Every structure is written in structure tokens, then in C-alpha cells.
Amino acid sequence: MDTHTTPLIEYLESLGYKVELNNGDSVAKNYDNTNEAMNSLYDGIGLRNISHSGILELRGNDSVEFIHRIATNDVKNLPKEGIAETIFTTEKGRIIDYTTLLNFESHQLLITSADFRNKIVSWLNKYIITDDVKVAVTEKKYYIFELLGPQAESFATLICGNIANQIQPNTFKIIHTEGMLFFLAKIKDIKGRIKFWTISDEDNARRLTKYIVDNKGIFNFNFIGEDVYNSYRIEQGIPATPYELNDEVNPHEAGLMDAVSSLKGCYIGQEVIARLETYDKVQKLLSGVEFTEPPLPESIFVLLDNEGKEAGNVTSYVNSLKFKKYIGLAYIRKNFLEPDMKLIAKDQFHRTLPVEVKSLPFKK
């Protein structure tokens, strides 16, 4: 979805929005407000444009049942205005993508990662045989903004009125206020915290964004670019595609079992995922690492112990904006997961750096 020249993007650029095109999608890298934005994520409210996500529209009488049958979560009885997070996995129980399903009754939206949108479309079409399901990749039809931070609920009430308080977690409602029309979704995220999405067309997204800026009041509010969010998500231990979520790991390892139903029966990959839990076969888990020296950019690290035995691999790292040190996420074998255990990170050029294992989320 190339939104670079839309009025919404032009308005955001006037506020300091720095746009980059990634596979044709407009991605907000930063807003020239790095320190203020990070402070808002921890102590206030941040607004992040996630319209570059994959936004698939599902239509047909069998759509919800179809998703229920092939993905990990129980969505068979997902009510109108209900939301469920579910994972698509391969036959071997490996992650294809972590997605969010919203039920509008007449149709559904499936929100995927930007990285694996096309893979999900191919996966869905592979299994649609006689089902009444039509999958469409939307282009410039829906715009999604994410409100996150400890003041998210209070801020949503300021913008939308008391209806924001009445919305239950993992549901959404239509909002008509100040001449604007949009959907407000209240979502419990991977870490169990509440965040909000606004979903609308481009014109309402632009007007809503301007309304938020004009009426933020005393709230600690800032726009959140992807550079700032990437630091925040690593600090909080939030896995993301294609780094932590890909077809080399399973939901157990990624800590995503809340999006996996153990009661609903078969889905693609179910037997492998169930066996891993039943027989305690999960070998590695997502954890944190702290670098004691700055790593070189674009290094790919394998983790070793002092005897040269492989302990895991680093998936993401960043010079943390909050903690002012280099930290990362890594899949580490369970026998190396003692806090502060010292390991060696070896890159693709055989350069080595000392690291320490840290629990998630990171703390000072």
C-alpha cells in the first residue's frame, strides 16, 4: 500500500514524519522526537501508524470456520465485533505468521505482518477448496493507528467518550464523533497489556489524527516511529517478524501459547505443537541478552558457551533508547537460561563479543 502522496501522509510529514518505502508500503521510521516518544511509551501515550501491516478482507459464509480449522486459536464462535489473535503454523508446527482476526459479521479483517502478508495469502488459498471464502488484499481501503502506553485507556476516553470504557478487551465498536467515523478496537497484547486500534478510511484517519493532536491536552502524547518502537519492543521482549517469528520456531519457543487453543482439536501443526508440550520437548525459549561491548551493525550472532558449545542465536539487537546499552532478543537453549549467565556471541566473520543472559522484559 503506497501511501506516500496521500493527504494523511502529507499531514504526518508536516508533523515530522519521516517516511520510507518498504516493498511499496509507507513506513514511519521516526518523527524527530526519539526521547519524548520513548518516554510516552513508558509513562504516557503513543500513536503509531501500523497501516503498513497486511490487511486482508475475508468474505463468505465459511470464513470464520475456515480460520478456526487451519489456525491455532479457537475462533469458531467469535462473536460480531469480536477480536482474536491466532497463529498460522506449518505441518511441523513452525510459525508462518502471528495474526489478529476481527469479525464484522458481514466480513472479517485478518491483520498480518507486513513481512509475511503474501505468504499468508498463499497459505489461505492453498487450503480453500470448496469453502465459501474469498480473500482480498486491501489497497488504501483501511488505515490502522495504534494507541499504546499506560495512559492509553484514559486517552481513548478523552477522544471517543465513555464508550471507550464500555468496550471489553478483544472487542471493537463503531465510533461516530465530531463528524468522524471509525472503529475503535480494544486489544490485549502479547504481554497482556491493553492497547487500542483505530480503523478507518484515509479521510477519517487524517481527520482523527489531527483531532488527536489538537485535543491531546495535558497527556504525555507523542507519535511513535518504527525506530523507537523497535527499541521498545526489544526492551519489552515482544517478538516480531521476520526476526523472532518465522518458520524456524514454534509458538512454545516464542512464548505465544496464549494464542493457541489446547481444547479445540485439529488444526495445521496441532499434533507437533501438542507433542512438544506433552513430552517436554521444547528445547529453547525467547530470552534477552545484554552486550558488554557494542556490536558492529548487521552482525549475525550465534551464541556459544565457554567450551564452544552452541547455546542459541541472537535474533534482534538495538542500542536501547531507554537503558542506553546494547541489548537483544535471542532463542537460547533451556540449559543456558540462568540469569546473568555469560555467553559468547560469534558473528558471521568469527568476531566474538561477551554477552549476558537477561530475563524479559529488560530492567535497569
Results as ranks from 00 to 15, higher is better:
Asp2Cys: 08
Lys18Phe: 12
Val19Gly: 13
Asn30Gly: 10
Asp32Trp: 12
Asn33Lys: 14
Ala37Lys: 05
Met38Thr: 06
Tyr42Lys: 13
Asp43Ala: 12
Ile45Ser: 00
Ile50Asn: 03
Ile55Pro: 00
Asn61Phe: 09
Val64Ala: 08
Phe66Gly: 01
Ile67His: 03
Asn73Pro: 10
Asn73Glu: 09
Val75Pro: 07
Thr86Gly: 05
Thr90Asp: 05
Gly93Lys: 01
Thr100Glu: 10
Leu102His: 11
Leu124Ser: 04
Asn125Arg: 13
Ile128Glu: 01
Lys134Arg: 14
Ala136Val: 15
Thr138Asn: 08
Lys140Asp: 15
Lys140Arg: 15
Tyr143Asn: 03
Leu148Ile: 13
Leu148Arg: 04
Ala152Gly: 01
Phe155Trp: 03
Ala156Gln: 03
Ile163Ser: 05
Ile167Phe: 03
Gln168Lys: 14
Asn170Val: 00
Thr171Phe: 08
Thr171Arg: 15
Ile174Asp: 10
Ile175Ser: 00
Thr177Cys: 07
Met180Ser: 07
Met180Gly: 04
Met180Leu: 14
Leu184Thr: 00
Gly192His: 10
Trp197Arg: 04
Ser200Trp: 03
Arg206Tyr: 10
Asp214Leu: 10
Gly217Lys: 03
Phe219Lys: 02
Asn220Met: 06
Phe221Arg: 00
Tyr229Lys: 09
Arg233Asp: 09
Arg233Trp: 02
Ile234Thr: 05
Glu235Ile: 09
Ala240Cys: 08
Thr241Val: 13
Pro242Gln: 05
Ala254Met: 01
Met257Arg: 04
Val260Arg: 04
Ser261Glu: 08
Ser262Ile: 11
Ile268Arg: 01
Leu286Cys: 03
Ser287Tyr: 14
Glu290Leu: 11
Phe291Thr: 01
Asn306Ser: 15
Asn319Glu: 13
Ser320Thr: 11
Leu321Glu: 07
Lys324Trp: 09
Tyr331Glu: 00
Leu337Arg: 15
Glu338Thr: 15
Lys342Ile: 13
Ala345Ile: 04
Phe349Trp: 13
Leu353Ser: 04
Val355Asp: 02
Val355Ser: 03
Glu356Trp: 11
Phe362Val: 09
